[in-house]
Design a protein around this nucleic acid. Structure first.
Lengths: 143, 143
DNA sequence: CGCCAGATGACACTCAGTTGCAAAAGATTG
DNA sequence: CAATCTTTTGCAACTGAGTGTCATCTGGCG
C-alpha cells in the first residue's frame, strides 16, 4: 500500500518475473536494499535483516545476494581485501572512491575515463566485458 | 656468480637493509620472482619453489610475500575473485587487462587516465593513496 | 485446503590466508 | 670456529568469507 515503486528497481516484480519465489526472508532483504544508502556487506545486511526477523540466516543472505546479482538487480563490489559489498543496480554506471579511514564509498563517474578504457582495450584487441576502477584515498586536510 | 643484478630490484640488498635475514627459503622465493615474467599467486610460487627446495612451506611463501610487499619490493593484485597474484615492483606503474578466458594479464599504462583520476579525487577533496584499474575482457575475434 | 518444487536454517565444508609454537638456522661476537 | 641470541621456519590449528548438503518448511498454484 506504500507508494514508492518507480524510482528504485522493483525487486518483487523482478523476482516474480524470473520465476523466483517471494519468501519472507527475501522480502526482508530486498526491503533493506531498497532503503539503503550505503554499500553494506552480507554480514551487515544480515544484521539489519535480523532486526526485522531474527530467524533469517546468514546463508540465506548470501544465497539471496547471489540470486539478485544473477538477475542484475544488484552489483557486487570486492574492495581492497574486504568482503563483498553490495549496492542496488538501476542507477547510472559509476566507479568508486573508498575512504581508507572510514571505509565510506563515494561514487563518481567519468565518461572520459570510460572512453579511454575502450580505446585501450580496442588497441590491445580486446572487448571489455566489465571493468573495475577504484580510488583509495584520504580526505585532504585543510590545515 | 651470475651477472644479472642491475635491471630488476636487488632483493637481497633490500632485505639486508631492512634488517631482515636472508634465509634459504627467502632466497629461493626471491630468485623465482626475479626471473618470472607472469603474475603468479602464492600457491604457484610455492610450486615453483618446491622444485628447487621441497622443504619450503606454503606459510613461508605467504609470510615472505607479506615482507616483500611491506618493503615495496612487490605488488599484490587481487583480481576478480581469485587469490592474490604478485609481480615485482620497480617497473613503471601500469594497470591490468585480464583475459577472462585464459587468466592472462596484460599490462597497460595511460597517463591520461591517471591524470583524470587525480582530477576527480581533487574535486572530491581527497588525496589518492593508490588506485586499482582493471579491465576484464575477451580477445576480439576477427570472424 | 492440499500439494510439491523451490527455499530455508543449520551445519559441515572449502579456500585463501594467518597464527602459535617448538625446533632450526641466520647473524654477530669472542 | 663455537656460543649465543634472535629471527625464521615448518607444521598444524585456526580464521573469515562464502558454498554445499540435506532434512524440513512454505509459497503459490490448483
Amino acid at each position: 500500500m506504500t507508494k514508492q515503486q518507480n524510482q528504485k528497481p522493483d525487486y518483487e516484480k523482478m523476482l516474480r518475473k524470473a520465476g523466483v519465489r517471494i519468501t519472507r526472508p527475501r522480502r526482508a532483504i530486498v526491503e533493506i536494499l531498497t532503503h539503503c544508502e550505503d554499500h553494506p556487506d552480507a554480514l551487515e545486511i544480515f544484521r539489519r535483516a535480523a532486526e526485522v526477523d531474527s530467524s533469517i540466516s546468514l546463508s540465506t543472505v548470501y544465497r539471496t545476494m547471489k540470486v539478485l546479482e544473477g538477475l542484475g538487480a544488484i552489483h557486487r563490489h570486492a574492495f581492497e581485501g574486504g568482503p563483498s559489498r553490495f549496492e542496488q543496480a538501476g542507477g547510472e554506471h559509476h566507479d568508486h572512491l573508498i575512504d581508507l579511514d572510514t571505509g565510506d564509498v563515494i561514487e563518481f563517474k567519468s565518461d572520459r575515463i570510460e572512453h579511454l578504457q575502450n580505446e585501450i582495450a580496442e588497441a590491445l584487441g580486446y572487448d571489455i566485458v566489465h571493468h573495475r576502477l577504484e580510488l583509495y584515498g584520504r580526505k585532504r586536510k585543510a590545515s
